[in-house]
Every structure is written in C-alpha cells, then in structure tokens.
Nucleic acid binder design. Structure first.
Lengths: 185, 185
DNA sequence: GCTGTCATGTAACAGGTTACATGATTCG
DNA sequence: CGAATCATGTAACCTGTTACATGACAGC
C-alpha cells in the first residue's frame, strides 16, 4: 500500500492531474516506482474519498478539463506518519535472474541473447541517468551548499537510479563474460 | 506469471513438496524471487491440473505425508520455451526510495533512523552471501573448469545477490553521509 | 483523412498478502 | 503441559495489469 504515499510525495512537490502524475511516474519518481494511469485514477479517487486530497476542476482551452489534486492537511499528516514508520527490507524480484539460474534447462544461446537485450536496455537507461546527473551538476556546482534539503534528496535518489543501473550492467556483463569464455574453449 | 516458471526451475533441480519449495524460496532462488507457502500450494495445484508436474504422495514416519512434485515432459517444454522468450526490463520498486525522496515532508531524523535500520539489514545479508561465496570458492577453487554449467549459473546468481546488497549498502551509506554532513554544519 | 496527444474512466482478470484452520509429533 | 515444527490447505482481500471506451483537438 505504497502507491498512495508515492502520490502524496509527488502532489506535495506540485499539485497535478492523474495524467500528469502518470507522466511523472515514468520519469523521476519512476526510478523506483511505477504506475499506470488506470491505477493512479483509482487510487486518487480513494484518496479523495478519504480526504487526503482535494480535487479542483480546471477548464482548459482546446483540450479537456483536468482535475487537479492537492494534498490536504490530513494527507500531510498521513504522509508524515508513513515516513516515520520502518520499511521492511524488500527483496528484489527479477524474472531475468530466474532465467539465468535455470539456463541449463533450455537453449543457452537463446538465453544469452535475452540477457544481451536486457544489458543493452539497462545501458541506455544508465546513459540517460548520467546525462541527468551531468545537467544537475552543471546547474549547481560548485555551490553545493545552496541545495535545499529536498533538492539534495532528489539528487540522491537519482544517484540510486544510477547505481542500480550500474548493478545491472556490471552483473549481466559478468554473466555473459563467464559463459562466453566457456563457449570459445 | 513467473512463479510457475521459478517453481519449474526449482523442481528440475530436485523434486519437492510445497513446504520444501517454500524453504528454498527463502534461500538460494530467494535472492531474486520470493513466495509464501499459500501461494506455492495454489500454483502447484494449477500446474498439476495443467499437466506440468506429477504429484506422488510419499508416506513418512512420525510426520504427515508429503506430496512430492516432479516436472513432466510437458513442463520441461514449457520451461524451455519460457527461457527463450525475451524478458522486458523490470523497474525496481522500492518503498524506501520513495521515503528518501519525500523526506522533507516528515521528520527527517526519524527517516534517517529508518534508513539506518535498512542499511543494517542489508549489511547482514551481504555478510551472509559473502560467507556462501567463500564456501563455494573453498569447495571448487582452483579447478574452476570442473564446474558444470548449472553450478556456474548458481554461482553467478549468488554473485548477483552479492552485487545487489552492495548496491544497497553503498547507496544508503551515500544518503546517510550526505545528510549527516549537513546536520553537523 | 489518419495518427498522436490530452484527458478521464470502466471492467475483468491475474498475482500476491494476510488471517485462519487442521492435525500429528517432537522437545523442553 | 505448552511450544515449535512438519505438512497442507481455505477464504477474503488488496494490488496491479490488460483491454476497451469516449471525445476533442493538433499536425502531417
């Protein structure tokens, strides 16, 4: 039950419509959380019912009205409480890892191709995140002390995104290297 | 829909009862996949219906009978097909990361404690995995060429477990260090 | 005219979690 | 005698995914 809270974080940064939230979730927050618009609409409706957010219909020219959601004082309290409660350690869940482990029960060459495709995807995403980091440094350096606490948090979460993609690139490379060494023997 | 396939991998390594599988999932395979016994029983029943596994009741002395599941030729084909199909890149989903990002909307000191607790958990798990790796090396080194392909896969997935825990330890340490530096300023 | 974007939603289903239930045996 | 372990399961619920639906405007 964390999508609610992820939405609260995003809405406290900036009130938004359902679709705007969905777009944010494929960017920054999306380093570590993902949600489709259908899911977001459903949860937003519940949050409105529970009084965590208020909804304001904003008319627009040349496009449909949008419903802008903003966090209420109750929502702020709910978020603050959640932030202070311990989070149990979450295990990574990876289909690819299961495939790598079971490789000998199928066509290994085909599986190595699957791994290569995933490696390429992670490499692209890593490059993208590194671009973002570069832009961030160009904006702020060398006056790092001027960062607000929240901007520092955003930066550090981006660092996490970079690190997780480095994990994938390094690990998948290790896997491929070990098996390619065998094939040529 | 990957629990089925994870179970097939585990059952090809060694036929097992539901509870035995649940235990394995909190160990080796569990580096990257987790499942409770309730879920495993439900999925095993479906796999039996679909003819992917056969069930043999094995009487035991002094404890309840167990139902040992073994993979059928059909199950083997299903597994091999699955192994050769591409896996889309899976985003990491982390509640802790959302909290770190939203830290400024709550009590930051409390959140840093939450992060510290998670760091300690990951450190313990990393130490455990490193022990396993050490044991593995002691068993096999320096005759690494004698490893079967499957044993190599098992080792490389353990390497992934080590790498992911290193990711957590390094990243959470970076986060704490950056914020602790602020507090003492 | 077709495709894409903005914007909101419904419905059905699949997957995963939590709580509860049963019954025997072993260990302190 | 009580607690823990082995072993299997049911039921209710929550979360997340996929497919489908609507309607208007913008750009090629």
């Amino acid at each position: 039950m964390a999508l609610e809270h992820a939405l609260l974080v995003s809405l406290r940064e900036q009130p938004a419509s359902g679709l705007e939230l969905a777009k944010r979730f494929s960017r920054s927050i999306g380093y570590f959380w993902h949600a489709t618009h259908q899911q977001i609409y459903r949860v937003l409706a519940r949050m409105d019912d529970d009084g965590w957010v208020t909804v304001t219909e904003v008319p627009q020219t040349g496009r449909p009205d949008k419903k802008v959601h903003a966090v209420t004082p109750l929502g702020e309290r709910v978020l603050a409480d959640w932030l202070a409660t311990p989070t149990p350690m979450e295990p990574l869940r990876s289909e690819l890892a299961v495939k790598m482990r079971g490789a000998s029960y199928g066509d290994r060459a085909a599986l190595l191709d699957v791994v290569r495709a995933n490696l390429a995807d992670h490499q692209i995403r890593l490059d993208h995140y590194r671009q973002l980091e570069k832009r961030h440094r160009a904006d702020r350096d060398p006056a790092r002390e001027t960062l607000t606490d929240h901007a520092l948090d955003q930066y550090l979460v981006l660092r996490g995104g970079i690190r997780i993609e480095e994990f994938w690139v390094d690990w998948l490379t290790e896997y491929l290297t070990a098996h390619e060494a065998r094939l040529t023997r």
